[in-house]
Design a protein around this nucleic acid. Sequence first.
DNA 1: TATTGTTATACTCTATAACTATA
DNA 2: TATAGTTATAGAGTATAACAATA
Lengths: 160, 160
Amino acid sequence: MVRTTNYVKLPRAMLKPSLSKKSAPSKLGLVDVLAQAAFTTMAILNKLAAENDLSLTQLRVAGILRDRRLRMLELADYLGLEKSTMTGLVDRAEKRGLMRRAPNPDDGRAIDVFLTKEGLKLAERLQGQFQDAIAPLTTKLKASDQNLLQELLERLLASD
Amino acid sequence: MVRTTNYVKLPRAMLKPSLSKKSAPSKLGLVDVLAQAAFTTMAILNKLAAENDLSLTQLRVAGILRDRRLRMLELADYLGLEKSTMTGLVDRAEKRGLMRRAPNPDDGRAIDVFLTKEGLKLAERLQGQFQDAIAPLTTKLKASDQNLLQELLERLLASD
DNA sequence: TATTGTTATACTCTATAACTATA
DNA sequence: TATAGTTATAGAGTATAACAATA
C-alpha cells in the first residue's frame, strides 16, 4: 500500500536574513546564519522525504537504523520522542514494508526494530539523493574551503 | 487561554555521525556535518519553541512578522505552506493574543496578518533566548574562527 | 474568470495517561 | 515494584478539494 500524498511545498524564503541593526555585534550574525543554514538544510531534507513519501522523522529513522538494530525505547531516545509515539511510527513503516519488529532475545519485554532489505535500499538511496540535493550549495566553495567549513562545524558540534 | 502542553523531549543523539567508510571522499563528510548541524540547531529551536508553548512553525512566523505585515498568502509562501494551513495556524495564534488579522486596504479579498504588541515582545524574547541557547556552541570557536564560519556559511547560502 | 481566504475532511506526528506483560 | 511497549485519546500541523467573496 503506497501513500500518494506528497506533503511539501517549498518555501520562498527560509528565514528572515537578519535584524541587521547597523552596528550589531558580529556574534549576532553567526547565530542568524546558523539558523538560516538549518532551515535551508531542513527544507532540503523535508523535500527529499516528501519525494519519497516519508515524513522527516521517518527519514531520520531510516538513517539511524541503516547500520543498527535498536529497541523501541532506544530509538525513541535517539529521536527525542516518547515511546508511545514510536508505536505509530513503526506501525506505519512496517505496513509499508520498510521496517520490522522482532522480540529482543535478551529481554522478554523489549522489541527490536530494524530495516527490511527494502528499507535499507531506500535508506541508501536517500543518502545519495541528499548529497545530490545539497551539492549545489557545497560546490559554491572551493575544495579547501569545504574542508575548512567541515572542520569548523565539527568543532562547533564536538560534544565535549 | 494558555496551552499547557510542552511538546518536546530532547534527543540523546542528533543524527548518525557518518557512514565513515574508511576512504570515503571528503565531500561526503561535509554533507553529513551540515545535516548534523541542522538537526542540532533545529533541536535547539524546537526546545525554545516548546519552552514558550509554541510550535516550530509558530516560532518562525514570529520571526518573520517581527518587522512586517503580510497577507495570508504571502505568509504561506514564506513558510512553504498551503494557504488553507495558514487559517488554523493564524487562528490559534490569534486566540493566544500573539497575532491579529485585518482587511487589506488595497484588496478586498486579502487579509493582512501582524503581531500584537504581546506577540512582538515574545518574538524579541525568542531572539535573545536563541542566542543564549546557541552560545555554548559558537563560543567553542575563537572570534576569528566564528567570523570565518559565518563567512563560509554566507557564501554557501548566497542565493545567486 | 482568476484570486484570496475559509471550511470540510483526512492523515501524520506528537504527547499524556492507563494498561499488559515481563524483570 | 520497576521497566518496555501498546492502546486510547487529544491537539497541532499538514494537505486536497470545494466554496464564498472580491477583482
